[in-house]
Design a protein around this nucleic acid. Structure first.
Lengths: 227, 227
DNA sequence: TCATGTGAACTCCTTCACAGCT
DNA sequence: AGCTGTGAAGGAGTTCACATGA
């Protein structure tokens, strides 16, 4: 046996590892260490070794990891050995950018359909794909056997759209709509709310401005003046 | 005293709570319960109460939370009582979409500058803002007192751009570039890698296809056949 | 000698369950 | 009676530190 159960946190870090390994490979590096790779991805060497050990990564003690082998190993764990087809629903500003984003195809994902509900948008070509009427969503998802969908619709229709996608056989949803969507067990959702990301940064900016909240990691251990 | 220290996980959930509360408010709902709100955001009631208790949320036992008061409380915790100015660097497909994305201004963030290095892009107008030469980055960040930056540059210049931003006084960076950026203590980064998000979904898709890895949550508690 | 692999300690987060107000 | 607030229990993830093997 090789792989048992990967903690979700480990899975979430694997793409980053793979990215950095790709960088090393393109520089002609053949072997790396947990310390070097950790530095590149911004993690601790111990965490990296623990993560890789779940994969049965096959590092050599005293030597390190073979870059190429490690890449294959992670790619396999992430299911990149098979082709994954995906669709994008909602071709507004964000959907448009996502449709032309090279980061998806770079990683082996194949875009098989763009959909929108706006007659003005339907029929236009974006990134080499004609935008189709969202009414035909199920047909395409089924015919192309798409397992992943990117939802970039207005918040008001995000849930209904997701329900349709799931009914059509999609098992993974990347949701950019400003609304949390519910899915049945066995289906996976990742919520990406760009506004929330800024707000989280805003929280920390507030801390720095001297607001009464979370402990600010001061460089020097200042003695508590209230003590 | 009111607020002490918010766990990072709690901070990350607050924007979602705020979003759902906004929905309730627009429906004219005056009071809510941890159970109702938890259902909306997809969390457990206990977690919600715990999170809100860190804020000194002021729910009434036997009654619930006053929607309007709670919104103010969370908004304050997130530093939304002050205006936050931000800039976007890299006006490619993604940067373009981000510049016209309404989710930022909806939440009180004020865009004060767009930057790019491409002469073809510099001078064009996107979302009512003229794209400026990235050479002038520091001037604008300083003059407008921008505390947050959105990095949507090619990976190759993401680190250098971030360094410049930090030197100019930015304390929060939202990084979309396909490379992890390093920042000094006291500066906050959030990495959003869209390709990674799909890959994480790809992992789970692979599980479902019957791959030898993580435990699939089966609907029925199947007895272990190896026992 | 060197860097991995890994049990164990530790820290953090979540869930539980009920006391405490309204 | 009802729902929050919260110690305490439980679970998960991270870090430590060293045995292990090249």
């Amino acid at each position: 046996m090789q792989v048992r159960a990967l903690p979700p946190t480990t899975v979430a870090r694997l793409p980053g590892y793979l990215r950095s390994l790709g960088g090393l490979a393109s520089e002609g590096v053949l072997t790396t260490s947990s310390e070097q790779l950790a530095e590149l991805v911004g993690a601790s060497p111990a965490q990296l070794r623990k993560d890789l050990s779940y994969l049965g990564a096959g590092g050599r003690r005293g030597v390190g990891y073979e870059v190429d082998h490690l890449r294959k190993q992670i790619a396999q764990a992430l299911g990149m050995t098979e082709e994954r087809r995906f669709v994008i629903i909602g071709i507004g500003n964000l959907g448009h950018a996502l449709a032309t984003y090279t980061g998806f195809s770079d990683r082996g994902f194949v875009l098989v359909g763009l959909f929108d509900a706006d007659p003005e948008v339907i029929g236009t070509t974006v990134g080499g794909h004609a935008v189709q009427d969202v009414a035909h969503l199920e047909d395409v998802v089924t015919a192309a056997d798409a397992s992943i969908a990117v939802v970039a619709t207005p918040a008001s229709v995000a849930q209904a759209t997701t329900d349709r996608l799931v009914a059509a056989g999609v098992t993974g949803v990347l949701n950019f709509a400003a609304r949390t969507v519910r899915v049945p067990d066995g289906v996976d959702v990742r919520e990406v709310d760009l506004g929330s990301e800024l707000q989280i940064l805003g929280f920390h900016a507030r801390q720095r401005a001297g607001a009464p909240a979370a402990p600010v990691e001061s460089v020097e251990p200042v003695p508590d003046p209230t003590a």
